[in-house]
Amino acid sequence: MTTAHGARASNRDALLDALERIISEGSVHDVTLDGVAARAGITKGGLIYHFKSKEMLLHALVERMRMRLDAHCVDPDMSPRLALRKFLIARIHYAFALSAQEKKVMANLLAAASSYPALMAPVKAMYEGGVEGLARVEGTAGLALSVWTALDGFVLLEMLGVRHFSAAEKEQMKAHLLLQVEQGIGLED
């Protein structure tokens, strides 16, 4: 039974990997259930076992991306102050390390949200949870919201091709944001 479950889980991941590649090479409009199944080397029935529709498939990819970010940035075992500091520092590093392919997938998923508004649910949940976390650390909400918003603005500008920052500009922004967090949220608990 474990083998079958493991195979199902790996099929699910293979389908999401295939979807991500298709979106990074084109757009969400290029996505078909048949195409994703073929790209993953899985039957359409195997795909439908995991995802009943294109929207469910896209939603699962957005959720997986959110979970990756959380795994990189969130540490529930730390005190609220140290967890917030770690979260912001990790988010800074994450935002400045996104590849062009990752930004293209994000841009295409954002565009798809106009046709599939439910794709925004995991993103909204991430923000709601983040804001609740900020409320637990006295005196840091302004700094944390400013850093978070600056990072999202930076990623959005690059993701949409509005502004591409030079390596020097990115290093300067990253260093400044890290300094703000390190000075504004000390290690003391």
Rank of each mutant, 00 (worst) to 15 (best):
T3G: 05
G6L: 07
N11Y: 01
N11W: 03
R12H: 02
D17T: 10
R21G: 00
I22A: 01
I22P: 00
I22K: 02
I23N: 00
I23C: 03
H29R: 13
D34R: 11
G35S: 06
V36P: 01
A38Q: 08
A38F: 05
A38C: 06
R39G: 01
T43W: 03
K44M: 01
G45N: 08
G45A: 13
I48P: 05
I48C: 10
E55N: 04
L58E: 02
V62S: 02
V62H: 00
E63K: 13
E63M: 13
M65T: 10
R66S: 06
M67D: 14
P76Y: 02
D77K: 10
D77M: 11
D77I: 12
D77Y: 11
S79N: 02
P80D: 14
R85C: 08
H93P: 00
Y94C: 01
A95N: 01
L98E: 07
V105S: 01
N108Q: 12
A113R: 08
S115I: 13
A118Q: 14
A121D: 11
M126Y: 08
M126K: 08
E128M: 12
G129M: 03
A135I: 13
V137H: 08
V137T: 11
T140P: 05
A141Q: 07
A144D: 12
L145F: 14
W148D: 05
L151S: 06
D152M: 09
L160G: 09
R163Y: 15
R163S: 09
E169D: 15
E171P: 01
Q172M: 15
K174D: 10
L178K: 13
G184S: 12
G184T: 06
L187W: 08
